[in-house]
């Protein structure tokens, strides 16, 4: 069985838990995802912006079960906004729940299998899930 491929390797790595590929500006502003256009806080660009790995751990700000959705993603699914311990707020799909969760709940990043690539290579994508056991710290 081939090693699963990351669906969006520019956004996260294959660690356990995966780290998010964010950025930091010389002004101290931390952001996700990494981009080179310029800093939203100070306008700095070029060498002022550097990659920064962000731990995929944080607290849930809000979540919602989406019942109706145009596009390819079949509803229902659950989305959440997570305030990372490292600063930025990240919004993405949740796994490990089919209902909305109480704000403040500890969340951790995880990789879940998604549709394989055309050549059959298995692929995984990033989700947030409610933290369990040792992840709760």
């Amino acid at each position: 069985m081939a090693e699963p491929r990351l669906l969006m390797p520019q956004l996260y790595d294959g660690g356990s838990p995966p780290a998010l590929q964010g950025g930091v500006c010389d002004c101290g502003h931390v952001f996700f995802p990494l981009q080179a256009y310029g800093c939203e806080r100070c306008g700095g660009h070029g060498t002022r912006l550097r990659p920064k790995r962000l731990a995929a751990r944080g607290r849930l700000v809000a979540s919602a079960v989406v019942h109706l959705h145009a596009g390819e993603r079949p509803a229902p699914f659950v989305v959440g906004a997570i305030a990372l311990d490292d600063g930025p707020v990240v919004r993405t799909l949740l796994t490990g729940t089919d209902v909305s969760l109480p704000p403040g709940c500890r969340m951790v990043g995880t990789l879940v299998p998604v549709t394989p690539a055309q050549d059959g290579t298995p692929r995984v994508d990033f989700r947030f899930a409610p933290a369990m056991g040792s992840d709760l710290s």
């Binding site: 969006m8 520019q10 956004l11 996260y12 995802p33 981009q35 256009y37 700000v61 809000a62 979540s63 919602a64 989406v66 959705h69 145009a70 596009g71 993603r73 699914f77 989305v79 959440g80 906004a81 990240v90 919004r91 993405t92 799909l93 909305s100 109480p102 704000p103 990033f126």
Partner: peptide, 27 residues
């Protein structure tokens, strides 16, 4: 279409953005 990728922004239509805001407001 900024060229900056996103985790799942396609899953967060305006009504879902505000559904999360409603969840936050309610709490």
């Amino acid at each position: 279409s900024t060229g900056i990728p996103s985790l799942a922004d396609d899953a967060i239509a305006p009504f879902t953005h505000f559904a999360m805001l409603a969840d936050q407001y309610a709490h």
